[in-house]
Design a binder for these strands. Structure first.
Lengths: 241, 241
DNA sequence: CGTCATTTTGAGGTATTTCAACGAAGGTGG
DNA sequence: CCACCTTCGTTGAAATACCTCAAAATGACG
């Protein structure tokens, strides 16, 4: 049997759905082999950050790519109007640090205490250019993120706030590493963050949440936990684009 | 000086902004080397399709990836509500055929008469797994598409239809291969397609266009051409998210 | 040149945004 | 350990902007 990974940092697998048909068996299968993780570990630095810490700012020099190990991060953009648009929430096994011409496109901030790996971008590109199998995993991962982004764009085009909120809940619930139970959804982010993600006002998010509760689809417990009361009707509302 | 490309199908370069800093000189530099195009040409089939032709349907087996050579394609999704959401417009040098578990995520249809290259997906994945430099170009391209998608998601979160329409015009205008002149914007797609892309109703798109015209930012000539009258104010409106 | 899809215009309904004020929670420092 | 303060959440009421429905005009295409 395989020896457990040594003391060197154990880079986590990526979370993604492959674009090729799945000839093999089970579904949520880690993307990286142990060997690939070892390779990545050579240039990775493990970092542990407290909650609400700015990791990098938009337009700053993009020196690193990050991989979430544990915790939740938000990627957001401050708009001229003063609003704050959330481009993505990053959960464990997600990558972040999207760059354009060597500059970060968005800002990134931890939501919870977060452990992550930090890869120096030049070393990483060298590495994947020499290891096609490893590079392929990155390609799969980015492709997955593209699909998610397109889905979200379609999702937030709908008019009704309750429907959008339902989609968000299902979105977080389905994320295999978001730390939610089957019927419990962990919501570490603030209502404002959700509003920024869904393109709604903060008040609209609150009213949509109240409506979902009134219709007995979910029950909120405190601000960071939602219980799904009626999975079928919630999914139906979420899917009724 | 370099010899011109031989008779074998000349696969077009990709359109993308690299994520690494640009150490070299000029900006809109083709992504593929001649050698890489030759490699791709080995498995590519050149296809020429008339306007308004369905290329593939969502959930169909994804056997091919496509690269637009000339013309415009839309990637869209028919929603349960009967609405039609446009995920992306594909211009020359764009890739399309996004798949998930071997199935297409969206449907694709030509808008104009279109020339494209068709790559068998299994052969293509084999190829890029053996040619890291080539694979890297695909990674850059998909990363670019991801950025675009995130930008669009933020764009359509804004409330005002006129602002969204302005963003769309600038978006098309900036696309280096969309066939627009400096102040002329070619709009081969229908108003309904634009509405589906922006998450607006058809009527809202028309009224937003009328408002842009009333404010003398652009002038529409027929249905498929827009003249930019005031680039500065148009850009300002588009950027005033 | 006729047909049909697309575009355009009008009027009313409705959902969300905005503005404002209050209440609750979490973090910090004394 | 408590008080303070800042951030976040909540509720109400009015305004705005888009959506929907309906009908007419325009343009594309065979």
């Amino acid at each position: 049997m395989a020896v457990h990974r040594p003391a060197s940092p154990s880079v986590p697998p990526f979370h993604a759905t492959p674009f090729l048909e799945d000839g093999s068996a089970s579904d949520p299968r880690p993307l990286l082999t142990d060997a690939q993780r070892q390779t990545l570990a050579q240039i990775a630095v493990r970092v542990r950050l407290p909650a609400r810490l700015l990791i990098y700012q938009q337009d700053a020099r993009a020196d690193w790519l990050f991989a979430v190990v544990d915790g939740v991060v938000k990627s957001y953009r401050d708009l001229p109007s003063g609003k704050r648009a959330v481009a993505a929430f990053l959960f464990p096994q997600d990558l972040f640090g999207l760059a354009e011409r060597g500059r970060y496109v968005n800002s990134a901030k931890t939501i919870t205490r977060t452990t992550m790996y930090r890869f120096p971008l030049p070393a990483l590109t060298d590495l994947i250019k020499r290891d096609p199998g490893l590079q392929f995993q990155f390609l799969v991962k980015v492709t997955h993120a593209l699909r998610e982004s397109q889905r979200r764009a379609i999702a937030i085009a709908r008019r009704d706030a309750a429907g959008r909120m339902a989609m968000f809940l299902v979105f977080v619930q389905r994320h295999p590493t978001a730390g939610s139970g089957d019927l419990d959804i962990a919501l570490p982010m603030s209502r404002s963050d959700i509003a920024g993600f869904l393109g709604l006002s903060l008040e609209a998010v609150i009213r949509a949440s109240a409506e979902l509760e009134r219709r007995r689809l979910v029950a909120f417990e405190g601000r960071h936990l939602a219980h799904v009361l009626d999975p079928d009707r919630l999914a139906k509302l979420a899917g009724a684009v």
